[in-house]
Design a protein around this nucleic acid. Structure first.
Lengths: 298, 298
DNA sequence: AAGTTGTTTTTTATGGATAAAGTTCATGCT
DNA sequence: AGCATGAACTTTATCCATAAAAAACAACTT
């Protein structure tokens, strides 16, 4: 059966809105609410029905107003707000990165399905999606081959990343002076400097900035294949660093400084300087990844 | 039910082997045959059983020898030797390229499933696989968006292709003198010259050479992401040209000449000359694709 | 011991069913 | 006419079932 994670997440969202006083007086119409939450009216209605049933919302003569205060355990647990497909992704990444899965291992859909508690279909869909990351390969009628999260992988990944980023940074710097992206870049620089001041406690915030920064650079001259590739990078890094917390603060601080140098270079419009900053930053990111891969092999 | 296309294709293959006299005297063991055809023993046994049943093979005391002559209608029809997934691919490409599918159209899994006569599962798997081509996009819980086989697409595709190919050609030219790839390149050049002589009748053979050539260039310094990208290119071109036969001979002849210039450039080891030939060839390929895209929009 | 064939077990490819979520249609109210 | 709600209909996410194909096991032969 299809999960009702959309409903549960929406319910939690509505509960938070109630708690934070975003819904005072008469509640907005189903359609307005629907748009705010980003789901269909069918699902909002289900949410409203339940809110009323639990007396979080009172309903009289076609008018809905906030009811009793929202309680901590009115919320559905987080796990129930994530669709199966996402769970599969998480479990697979865990299996791949944390388990002792060696390069050359073959992947068995049925076994994973049993292990993760889902139907084989879900596993297969995930693997198809995941195959574009270059870590697994399908052999028809037979199964999948795990090629390994190896040094080679990291090298190939970064070779492409370097090409793409040099290209995008160059094009970014050639934008007209009045492009709004320059303003965005300036804002981003400020965010970097701010974070640097509070790096001791807020170092986790770096990954958000990192994403914003690299996406901004691509915005100047969009290319869907480069965007796609950047998604691969983010995905890999997301899971990889979730698993490898070592030196996180130190690493992020270093990257933050590199970004600032890189932004300054962009603002200078000086090609050579840009290329240098870009190379330096990526080389350092690559070195970090490689270091932890080697650790992984031991 | 799973199709038995593997069996049927294997049967046809075995029938051809019998007909061409590749199986004289006592037939090879199940295992040997299996390896030659590239399937499991289970399936070879099924093939052998049927061959015997149809008297194409005679079986006495554990010994199998060729039986009556193979007839044209012993073969299973081609359509039955292609797995469903492949059919879906073909039908989808037809639908996309030949139909009047406009950019922005949304794709409905159920409708396609009905139209193509398969279960929704198959459609969905295909779409997931196909999404890496950058032509469609998934919107969760809602369906897929067809972004259009547009000029933008072609431009973005070729921008990446140019970067990759310049990089690979450069690295190719830097290989040591004794690399076996130089020999392969020389052989490929001869094949090009030969084809050029018979271009009037054999112009269809170009696409095979094209593939060999571009793969060879990548071989010097492999990168899985570049290989993957090349698969996108081949796929797109395969279907696109299958649909657009206009000027095919002329186009292929021109490309053949460009390849020869390109090969000469590589053999000269002269970077500037290589880059020039590479650019010229890709620019021409892009122009051809763009021309037919514009025709498509009318 | 290595290679055969026969048999059993496991896994993949494919179809089918269904609750949840999305979309459309209908009706009523300003 | 334009927006609400109610109800019906359609599509997606997900599980389950099963024949075909692969893989593993077993017994036999040279």
């Amino acid at each position: 059966m299809r999960t009702d994670t959309v409903y549960k997440r929406a319910f939690n969202r509505a509960a938070s809105m109630l708690r934070d006083g975003q819904l005072v007086g008469e509640l907005p119409s189903e359609n307005q609410l629907r748009r705010r939450i980003g789901i269909s009216r069918t699902t909002v209605r289900k949410v409203l029905l339940e809110l009323v049933r639990r007396k979080l919302v009172a309903y009289h003569n076609g008018i809905r107003v906030a009811g009793r205060a929202v309680d901590e355990n009115d919320y559905y647990p987080d796990a129930e707000t994530t669709p199966r497909a996402k769970h599969v992704e998480q479990q697979f990444m865990e299996w791949m990165l944390r388990g002792d899965t060696k390069p050359g291992t073959s992947i068995n859909e049925l076994e994973l399905a049993r292990q993760f508690g889902v139907a084989t279909n879900g596993i297969r869909e995930f693997l198809i999606r995941f195959s574009r990351f270059g870590l697994i390969e399908k052999r028809p009628n037979t199964g999948w081959l795990f090629k390994g999260f190896t040094e080679d992988f990291a090298l190939e990944l970064f070779e492409i990343r370097m090409m793409f980023e040099l290209r995008s940074a160059h094009l970014f710097s050639q934008q007209p002076e009045n492009s709004p992206l320059w303003t965005k870049l300036a804002a981003l620089k400020i965010a970097h400097v701010d974070l640097l001041k509070r790096i001791e406690s807020r170092f986790h915030d770096f990954s958000g900035l990192d994403n914003r920064f690299h996406r901004l650079i691509n915005e100047a001259s969009p290319n869907r294949f480069i965007d796609d590739f950047y998604e691969i990078i983010s995905f890999i890094f997301h899971y990889h660093y979730q698993w490898n917390k070592q030196d996180e603060k130190q690493r992020n601080k270093a990257a933050l400084l590199e970004h600032i140098t890189y932004i300054d270079a962009l603002e200078s419009r000086n090609s050579a300087r840009i290329a240098k900053a870009c190379r330096a930053h990526l080389a350092s990111a690559r070195a970090t990844l490689m270091r932890s891969l080697i650790a992984l092999e031991e």
